[in-house]
């Protein structure tokens, strides 16, 4: 490729000299090494500019979609390190179908949306940049119908759409992101740097986002769920169930990282009363209960 480029330049120079009447054998004595040096110099400059651009993008809050997905994959792998997936193919496929259907109604349908139920008794759900979302079994088992599952997934999808976690990671782990993105993605160094990024990023999930982002994800989530044909009021049902759990141990992280449930219910209720006008509330398709009954039976039998 490089040689082809050099040959092209050479041919152009040759014809140029011909047309201009400067033809002499000296014009053909081309310094190949010098050319090579120039190419190397150009490449180094390009790399330097790329790094500077990345630094500038990071400073101004821009991360490419490719990098966002890369960061998100690694961060979710950290959470999977804390709690693995529930070993049930049907359950995992089910949550992916419901989740992707909602994501298709969002502003970023092109992301590699990936969902999972993780094996933890804690009640929580997490979203990672690039479209990676997990719900704990502790939360999943509290859901009564598909609309309620959709309401949780739509809330998390909204965090991804709005890049809430990506922004938070950028704020706290600028150095780590830059380190991980600056080296070749397949190298050992990259893995080490990514590990450092994961370590610093997962802290956000223990600390929580800005509470305004949670209200924002509630607001956008109910609309996404309604767009996908689900009952948008199902989120209020879920919040009410969670509120009834009170100060249980399994709620500790959730309660620390989210605004008070009472406030979320009041804010959402008022907002939906004033601005959400849906003529007909869709009936639930009863798919969640049907599937859960067979899962529960299989588990008890096994």
């Amino acid at each position: 490729m490089k040689q082809l480029k050099a040959l092209q330049i050479l041919a152009t120079l040759f014809f140029l000299s011909l047309t201009c009447g400067f033809y002499s054998p000296a014009a053909l004595s081309f310094d190949w090494d010098k050319m090579q040096q120039k190419i190397e110099k150009y490449k180094a400059k390009k790399k330097e500019l790329k790094a500077k651009k990345q630094q500038l993008d990071l400073a101004t809050g821009k991360v490419s979609q490719k990098d966002e997905i890369n960061i998100g994959r690694n961060v979710i792998s950290g959470l999977l390190g804390a709690a693995p997936l529930v070993e049930d193919d049907r359950l995992q496929q089910y949550i992916n179908e419901v989740g992707y259907w909602i994501a298709l109604q969002s502003e970023r349908p092109e992301l590699p949306w990936t969902f999972g139920v993780i094996n933890s008794p804690h009640v929580n759900a997490f979203a990672s940049p690039g479209g990676f979302i997990v719900v704990t079994l502790g939360l999943y088992e509290l859901l009564e119908n598909e609309s309620q599952l959709a309401s949780i997934l739509a809330h998390e999808i909204s965090h991804v759409i709005e890049k809430h976690h990506l922004d938070a990671i950028q704020d706290t782990s600028k150095k780590e992101i830059l380190g991980a993105l600056a080296v070749k993605a397949t190298s050992k160094k990259h893995r080490e740097k990514m590990q450092r990024l994961v370590n610093s990023s997962v802290q956000i999930y223990a600390r929580g986002l800005d509470k305004r982002f949670e209200y924002g994800a509630d607001r956008r989530g109910v609309v996404l769920a309604a767009r996908a044909g689900y009952d948008p009021y199902a989120l209020l049902d879920v919040l009410m169930t969670l509120r009834s759990l009170g100060q249980e141990d399994t709620m500790a992280v959730f309660l620390n990282t989210h605004p008070p449930l009472k406030d979320r219910i009041t804010v959402l209720e008022g907002l939906m009363d004033r601005h959400l006008h849906i003529e007909k509330i869709p009936h639930d398709n009863e798919r969640l209960q049907t599937m859960n009954q067979s899962l529960g039976k299989k588990n008890t039998d096994g």
């Binding site: 994959r73 690694n74 979710i76 792998s77 950290g78 959470l79 999977l80 390190g81 804390a82 709690a83 693995p84 997936l85 193919d89 995992q92 496929q93 992916n96 590699p112 990936t114 969902f115 999972g116 993780i118 933890s120 008794p121 804690h122 929580n124 990676f132 997990v134 704990t136 990514m194 590990q195 994961v198 997962v202 802290q203 999930y205 223990a206 500790a252 992280v253 620390n256």
Partner: peptide, 23 residues
């Protein structure tokens, strides 16, 4: 689990990530 302490100490599980992506 996903208590605060467990989240903070989490190490990446890439095998589980690939499994998640397969669904």
């Amino acid at each position: 689990g996903l208590s605060e302490e467990q989240i903070k100490k989490a190490t990446p599980n890439l095998a589980e990530l690939r499994k998640m992506e397969s669904y």
